[in-house]
């Protein structure tokens, strides 16, 4: 759960100083990258490592541009995103349903909790060979594994969220004549939403982490994981680094543009978590 919290904190510190001293802020944020980039260049030019293994930033940039223009990089990225979203959608649908069920019904909780608790502590990637054996190399294994692994945090958080819905909300709603169905729709779901969103966010982060690795193992024809893994064979370190940059950008964008937006529209506006 801390993942989500910490990323929020970063943005807050960055946001807070916005306004008059915009330029200084930008300079301050760029400065560390200039330093690190400089060190990188020095190492690259010094020849401590072979140039093929440690390309200069210009080479990486050139490779990035070239791979983008030829459409290779976008193709890889799109394939990866489709897998990610399919897997995550599966996890979201099943995870929220199971988690909410567990929170609402004692029986469902008793049945699912042992299964979930046994499956969760095993690192997701450890299931990969098993899935590859059962479902074969390729897309199906990759998507199913991503869905399976990212379902765990979603289940756990939805479950806790429903349990954490304040008794006083339930009572107030009942006093105002809400039946079970409307209690669920108007009170339980919005009340549990901060947790459910956290779960989805963690699930997506997990899905993203695992997918890159799965693409390396599952021998899918396209995908960013496959790109960087394949680049290793031909010592295309520049292509590899370009791939890693895209991976970082997508990860950042998912967090910034998807989840923070949803949160700002709902739980932040309601004051259920501080922004």
């Amino acid at each position: 759960m801390q993942d989500a919290v910490t990323t929020i904190m970063v943005d807050r510190t960055l946001d807070r100083s916005q306004g008059g001293e915009r330029i200084r802020l930008i300079a301050r944020n760029v400065f560390p990258f200039v330093v690190v980039g400089g060190i990188w260049e020095i190492i690259a030019w010094s020849g401590i490592f072979p140039r093929r293994l440690f390309p200069t930033l210009e080479e990486v940039a050139a490779s990035f541009v070239q791979l983008t223009i030829t459409g290779i990089l976008p193709h890889h990225a799109i394939e990866t995103l489709i897998r990610l979203l399919t897997g995550f959608a599966l996890a979201g649908i099943f995870g929220v349903t199971i988690g909410v069920l567990m929170g609402r019904s004692r029986r469902a909780e008793d049945i699912f909790l042992p299964l979930v608790s046994i499956g969760a502590p095993i690192p997701g990637l450890a299931y990969a060979p098993l899935f590859l054996l059962w479902f074969g190399l390729g897309n199906i294994s990759a998507v199913l594994l991503v869905g399976f692994v990212s379902a765990f945090p979603i289940i756990f958080n939805s479950w806790t969220g429903v349990k954490a819905v304040k008794e006083i909300w339930v009572r107030s709603a009942q006093a105002m004549g809400a039946d079970d169905r409307r209690l669920f729709r108007h009170v339980i779901l919005p009340g549990a939403l901060p947790y459910i969103l956290t779960g989805l966010r963690l699930g997506l982060a997990q899905a993203w982490r695992i997918l890159v690795a799965v693409e390396m193992l599952a021998a899918v024809p396209w995908g960013l994981g496959w790109l960087i893994f394949g680049a290793r064979k031909f010592l295309n370190t520049d292509a590899m680094l370009a791939g890693i940059v895209v991976i970082a950008l997508i990860g950042l964008a998912l967090e910034k543009f998807v989840f923070q937006k949803i949160e700002n529209y709902t739980v932040v506006r309601w004051g259920m978590i501080s922004s």
């Binding site: 990323t7 490592f49 293994l53 440690f54 990637l125 993203w208 982490r209 695992i210 890159v212 690795a213 390396m216 960013l224 994981g225 960087i228 893994f229 680049a231 290793r232 010592l235 370190t237 590899m240 680094l241 791939g243 890693i244 991976i247 970082a248 950008l249 997508i250 990860g251 950042l252 998912l254 967090e255």
Partner: peptide, 15 residues
């Protein structure tokens, strides 16, 4: 932070 650690494995293998 948004770079999954696994994405670095091929790079580190080279290095």
């Amino acid at each position: 932070m948004p770079i999954p650690s696994f994405a670095l494995v091929p790079l580190f293998m080279l290095w």
